[in-house]
Design a protein around this nucleic acid. Sequence first.
DNA 1: CTGTTAGCGCCTTCAC
DNA 2: GTGAAGGCGCTAACAG
Lengths: 337, 337
Amino acid sequence: MASTTKRAVTIIDVAKAAGVSVSTVSRVLNNKDDVSETTFQHVRDIIDELGYSSSLAAKGMRSRSTNVVGLIVPDVSDPFANKVMKGVNQAIVEHNYDLLIYTNGNILDDISAAREQQYVSLLNNGLTDGVITVTPSIGSFSSVGPVVAIDPHIHHPEAPAVISTNFKGAVAATRHLIDLGHRRIGFIRGRADLQSAIRRQQGYESALEKAGIPLDPSLVVDGDFTRESGVPAARQLFSLDPRPTAIFAANDETAFGVIDVCDALGIRVPEELSLVGFDNIAEAAYCDLTTVDQFMDRMGYIGTKMLFDLIDGKPLIECIYKIETNLIIRGTCGSIS
Amino acid sequence: MASTTKRAVTIIDVAKAAGVSVSTVSRVLNNKDDVSETTFQHVRDIIDELGYSSSLAAKGMRSRSTNVVGLIVPDVSDPFANKVMKGVNQAIVEHNYDLLIYTNGNILDDISAAREQQYVSLLNNGLTDGVITVTPSIGSFSSVGPVVAIDPHIHHPEAPAVISTNFKGAVAATRHLIDLGHRRIGFIRGRADLQSAIRRQQGYESALEKAGIPLDPSLVVDGDFTRESGVPAARQLFSLDPRPTAIFAANDETAFGVIDVCDALGIRVPEELSLVGFDNIAEAAYCDLTTVDQFMDRMGYIGTKMLFDLIDGKPLIECIYKIETNLIIRGTCGSIS
DNA sequence: CTGTTAGCGCCTTCAC
DNA sequence: GTGAAGGCGCTAACAG
């Protein structure tokens, strides 16, 4: 029997085959305890025999609980989303839930707020018991089920969210460079519409100020969190005279773009340029990139835990959970004598 | 308005607010052309105003088309599944479809055939127009919608699937080692229950035979495609006398396990040991590992394309699509003088 | 062009 | 313990 396109087996088919009513089958399906052992076993056998499996669609429409959590990501191949998925995955395994990931796959076409809201409703409208959104642009959703945001673009004080201490992390990264003796430190921005990107820039500026280093606007250039955007940004910084001796990129991807330019221009890292990234994505370890770990997998894990509490009706201790970042010193930074 | 847990807005609410019938709203929702421009616009406005979005559950239950494809993966963090997801993602963007990924997150607990079948039904029972399964253990499914398998454990001649030329790839890898002068070439097996693993071993043996090198059974050791399994396997091979001068690991993860052992034992690669992997996962490039690319993203992409044809009712030209593997020579192999 | 009428497959009262 | 009836939100016929 190859991939046959036949009519689906319904609960009615099972009921008929078992010689019982539909409601009895439904009881068996949901492990209700008011069914005789004999009937229960009999129905179970028929179910297996027919290869029946209840339709999530119909089920979710009728009952309020599905035992699956939803996850909305802009793009499954995005490294950030990817690590978050990992953490979510771990949490759902522990809670014996299933996971439904929804994506329109296009991180580029700016998902509108309306569209985000639509996805949330889509899932929480019967399919899932709650949903997690990754880097949503809106801070709060209207939904029948609970919603937890991971690294939302803007913070809404009452909307459950998990964020990392971007400011602190950026301060740590910048100070590390300063401690190494650097004074001309370039900064490549992240996407201007993201809260996290803004906080990182603020951290950079704050650390400079604390160290008494005047802020040079020409050292701060645009980027958008992509590797591609790191290339022109780096070229722009390298065209400066004197050249910055260090660069702090708003995220690892951008830092890789900087490395691409260094390779092309023959600039040695860390001898001629010190470089720090942000995120600690998997590739960072392989490239020996000094960066700030923001434990994205942990964000996904914690977020899912929060969601479970919400689903269970437990009150949240903290509506907004902050995860401490951690500077990871690897090989892309050198000291200036 | 924070994440509110209120009743969902239904099509009825919209109809009432717009002063039209439910079916008219449904028509607008599905862009039917038999609605007057005025009514259409009016209803659209109300929809936006109420923040309404139709329930996938109810919709899928009634109509046969949902414009979303399903993807079943054992674990979202598995590198293989991850690359496949990438390809699928690309295809759905091109076709303007949405993607629903289902996982129970646990690659460890051997998903039973019944369970796999259940997931397929779950999705194709109203939620999706078709589904793609990654490394399913059964070759064929009974489903209302089309199903395409990526790298199925066993091949069913009539079930649509995408596979790669594991045999050829393994021959190429082994021959590469032979051409470099190696005669004692160790092989670390993949999971014994996987078709792909078996084919790779056959390729290894065939290449040896063609070159007139007698097969030494002690050079073939067990593995299970995990990095962890590569460690004892490598140790076993290294305990041989004389030691093999090269190792062909059934996949990259296993090869990394070998590298771990080399690091621990101080064996230099490629000077003292030549190493080839299989898969070309992202990390392979960073480790400069010579490997066989099987274009997993392309497998996902092609598989999805096939699925779209199936959904559109077009006949498949080839039921089983083979993707040619490609040996990628990097830095982990040296020649023997 | 628009409204009315049936269900889709399932779960949840309520009877028996 | 079990069955019958109603309805979840939606779309696909039919009528008008």
